[in-house]
Amino acid sequence: MWEKSSSAPLVNAPPSLQAALNLLNRNPNIQIWAGGTALPSKPADQILSLNLVDEIKKITPWERFVDWGAGLSLNQLVLQGKNLLPPLLLSALKTLGNYPLRNQGTLGGNLCSEPGGDLFPLLQALGAQAEFRSAKGFRWEASSQWPARGLKPLPGEILCRIRIPKETWNLTLFEKLGTHRSAGEEQVSYFVLARITRETISALRMGIYFPSAGLLRNRALEANLQGRKLPFTPQDKELIYKAWEEEFPFLTKPLAPFQSSRLTSITDWMIKQIREE
């Protein structure tokens, strides 16, 4: 766990969300603890354990969206919400860590870790919203406002719910290269969400996520490709490569040569999948 020399933190485990928020209001620097799979290098003086807070472990289906408690473990999402989860998330969840880690890791933890976990770009693509609560009230943050590298609750706030719209896509593709054992640079995941009617793209979201460098997703490209007839022409392909290049300056780290070569082959593969659909 932590270094042996560090002093033992004081652990608070409030039984309700209100008690947790009150505690956080009095001490905004307290370290929030939910799953504990991503440990900070040094423990804080005080820990706020959310293990007993049931309010953040609920799944609430509505007519047009589903609210997912941020305290749900990744395996609970799969087991309890299998019929409600978008297929994209379901396939991504199974690739996260290993089974015991998924029992411990939480949805909120995956989104708030630095950089954001694998679910972060997917939820952005799905148009999710995050609800943060504090002792003073609550606020919703739409995925378009989310920071680039994981959600950041303000001091005194707890991420409580993630709202995912119910939408149907006829092409859902998620693949991940590398496992949790691989070095950061060797990991890459990519996704495609597309609605295709009569060989015409009516909606498209696609991205390639390098946890070590950031997300490549170009909204202008997605808008540009809407209404295109399939299969893609060589010009469309060029357009996609160019769109990725436009995103390079926003990456936190330049791509290594092997990552660039992966980018080319992954893009080809994504185009092929869209064309086959």
Binding site: M1, S73, N103, Q104
Partner: peptide, 8 residues
């Protein structure tokens, strides 16, 4: 629930 004791 199956977990890893090194992380608990």
């Amino acid at each position: 629930k199956l977990m890893l004791a090194c992380r608990v």
